[in-house]
Design a protein around this nucleic acid. Structure first.
Length: 445
RNA sequence: GGACCCAUAGCCAAGCGGUAAGGCACGGGACUGCAACUCCCCCACCACCAGUUCAAAUCUGGUUGGGUCCUCCA
């Protein structure tokens, strides 16, 4: 498997630290509001990644955090006269609901910053002791000059960063590049620490949670491309001075999503929440996966309807295949030729996924098999052939996270189909249509 | 101002040196009791200019037009 590693800026063979095991961490949401469809991109993509690894037999240890300490949460809490924890809890639930609606699994490890406060403070203390951080009036800053390779991930050098840095209001920093690890404050939720009463900076939390959960360098660290600098750069810097590794071996970043060509901002009022997305969310997921994860993607309502139709088409085929495989009387074993056809698309699908999770090409394979499936149906292929096809199709859809629900027909239901078939043969259209209505009503047709 | 990315049919979107995948829409057929579904065919000189090469959408330089990061942001 090849993966594009932002750290080395090239395609690399993926070799996990431990055989058949993948450790992965993705920066999660700050829970101060509902998630918008841009936030949904990593939620969908990295879920697809874990699904793919699982399908290959890997044991996936996946963690993604909730940032439940943040100025925006405090502001929200103040406005709504609730505690920060209540606000956080509420939006965490909302997030999980949204993630689930998008077809993403929610049974992964979900650390919350507030649960790691002791460890965060200890970690900052450790950085101070190692002289990688310094305290000024209760604030703690990370000393970027301690890390020779600072800027490697985001591919920029210190001179450029210095030159490009805005005028720094905070004269207490040794360098404008230094970032806050701990901020002294007595307003809003805050904690005691050896430095002062205050709150942690947001670059530290992820490092501490990764370290606490995985206890070593992980395989994959992911997030949106906008996190490359400074967030992930700063995470690496802290890991290097404290743990002598770069936190993760592979850094994956998904591209941004725009609406009608414009950037989406909650503050600008053009944000579209996942919960407000019209139609079947699986169509939206299909839309997301139809563009390579590293490319920017532009959302339009018109394109959504296209994917609704595509989704329906897939669903129709699967249901029809499944039904016919159940009803088939011909149980001749599948022929080599047919098996080869199915296999061909399976191979195409896997090869696409193996090349940096190329879901657009994987979907092309999905379409190829869908077409083949309809041809099998038309040719009245044997039940075994239809079964094999539908199994393969469903395996693909499962990896993409857009499953179609089908359930076996009861004896009674099979009888209904048989009667319908008889009536049609007898050309008793009125009675046949009545049965068809019944079948449709039971969502069998 | 610095760093970087992108430009492929009406729309969406693969490809990353050997003469353009796929989907939607359009058009033409087929199947069909009616619906729905489905199948087949058709549909691109890859923004522009110059170069490298036997060979370029794919590499190099330039032009134009978009976008991202440098600041909270997935």
């Amino acid at each position: 498997m090849k993966i594009w590693n932002t750290y080395t800026n090239q395609l690399e063979d993926f070799v996990p630290k431990r055989e058949k095991e993948v450790s992965m961490y993705v920066c999660g949401p700050t829970v101060y509001d509902h998630i918008h469809i841009g936030n949904a991109r990593p939620v969908i993509f990295f879920d697809t990644v874990t699904r793919y690894f699982s399908s290959l037999g890997y044991h996936v240890r996946f963690a993604s955090n909730f940032t439940d300490v943040d100025d925006r949460i405090i502001e929200r809490a103040r406005k709504e006269q609730r505690t920060e924890l209540e606000v956080g809890d509420y939006y965490i639930r909302q997030f999980l609901e949204a993630a689930e609606s998008l077809g993403s699994k929610t049974d992964y490890i979900q650390p919350r910053v507030t649960e790691y406060m002791d460890k965060i403070i200890d970690f900052i203390q450790e950085l101070v002791e190692k002289e990688a951080a310094y305290v000024v009036d209760g604030d703690v800053f990370f000393r970027v000059s301690k890390v020779a390779e600072y800027g490697h991930l985001s591919n920029r050098n210190l001179d450029e960063l210095q030159a490009g840095a805005r005028i720094e209001l905070n004269q207490r920093k040794e360098s404008p590049l230094d970032f806050v690890l701990w901020k002294k404050t007595d307003s809003g939720i805050h904690w005691h620490s050896p430095f002062s009463d205050g709150r942690p900076g947001w670059h530290t939390e992820c490092v501490v949670m990764v370290d606490s959960i995985f206890h070593s360098e992980i395989d994959i660290h992911g997030g949106g491309s906008d996190l490359v600098f400074p967030h992930h750069e700063n995470e690496i810097a802290q890991a290097i001075v404290s743990r002598h590794h770069r936190l993760a071996r592979y850094w994956l970043h998904n591209g941004r999503l725009n609406i009608d060509g414009a950037e989406m901002h909650k503050s600008e009022g053009n944000a579209l929440f996942v919960k407000d997305l019209p139609g079947d969310k699986r169509a939206f997921r299909l839309f997301m996966l139809s563009t390579h994860y590293r490319s920017p993607i532009n959302f339009r309502f018109e394109s959504l309807s296209v994917y609704e139709n595509e989704w329906k088409k897939l669903e129709n085929t699967i249901k029809s295949l499944f039904r016919n495989s159940e009803l088939a009387t011909d149980q001749t074993p599948i022929q080599d030729r047919e098996l080869a056809m199915i296999q061909q698309y399976k191979t195409q699908f896997i090869e696409a996924m193996e090349l940096d999770f190329n879901t657009p090409n994987a979907i092309t394979a999905l379409w190829g098999l869908t077409k083949q499936a309809n041809i099998f149906l038309k040719e009245k292929a044997s039940g075994a052939t239809l079964k094999k096809t539908v199994d393969q199709l469903r395996a693909m859809l499962d990896i993409l996270g857009v499953p179609v629900c089908v359930k076996s027909l009861s004896a009674d239901e099979k009888k209904l189909f048989a009667e319908w078939e008889t009536l049609r043969l007898k050309k008793e259209w009125a009675k046949a249509d009545e049965l068809r209505k019944e079948l449709q009503k039971r969502e069998l047709l």
